[in-house]
Design a binder for these strands. Structure first.
Lengths: 120, 120
DNA sequence: CTGCATCCACCTTGATACTG
DNA sequence: CAGTATCAAGGTGGATGCAG
């Protein structure tokens, strides 16, 4: 494919770093839900399902820090906070979903390999 | 019918599962190294750099179980063990590197967002 | 050379209680 | 409603020693 080997190592580190960033328990699920449009905190929480308040807050803060989502506070009572994907967030979704598509297509082969391995 | 929305949730779970699978500390680095061809245990360890013996063994076992690498033992003294990517392993590398390419292209935007967030 | 077993420090996650 | 604080529990990764 690409016969450039000069920066192979640091490139792989970068790949690894991104995968660890989006490879935590909730990030992808939250970003995917937000792909449908802006959402409020508890709305998002219900849409994801099974996530604790603390983890949703933590996940959203990290996404906001990295520029993947925006946080909009409406100073009303009760307070209302909207979360929305940025352009960067939507762009991230493209390669992430490509990997997801690959996963769905090949899950059978992986599970077959596992049964073979565990049986032996 | 619009079947692309029917299984949205479980698809996202699948995506999340794969990302967690390849999102551990060493998997991507090991698979990337093996992309260059078969390697022996300590050869691989040196190529990756910074990985402990335990983690290399653990990572390789998991990759073998999932059908991403093959393990070939030569019953010599001292023993020699070769690891090599399977077709499935090489195919996995495609979407993973796509995500890595995206990361390299957008790392600046992410870091800019972080500085903005941390500064505020 | 390869790899298992053990122990341990750290990090992530989750449950719970409380605040504006 | 949205968010913070605290504590407990499990998982992950690393150091070391031993074995085939």
């Amino acid at each position: 494919m690409t016969p450039r080997h000069l920066h192979e190592t640091e490139d792989c580190r970068a790949v690894s770093a991104v995968l660890q960033r989006v490879g935590d328990k909730w990030t992808v699920l939250v970003v995917s839900r937000l792909g449908a449009g802006p959402m409020r905190f508890n709305e998002l929480r219900a849409a994801v399902g099974g996530i604790s308040q603390k983890m949703l807050t933590t996940t959203l803060r990290a996404l906001e820090r990295d520029g993947f989502v925006t946080r909009t506070v409406f100073p009303t009572i009760p307070p209302r906070v909207d979360y929305e994907l940025t352009d960067l967030g939507r762009e991230l979704l493209v390669p992430v979903q490509a990997l997801g598509d690959w996963a769905l297509k090949n899950i059978d082969r992986v599970e077959a390999a596992r049964m073979r391995f565990d049986g032996a």
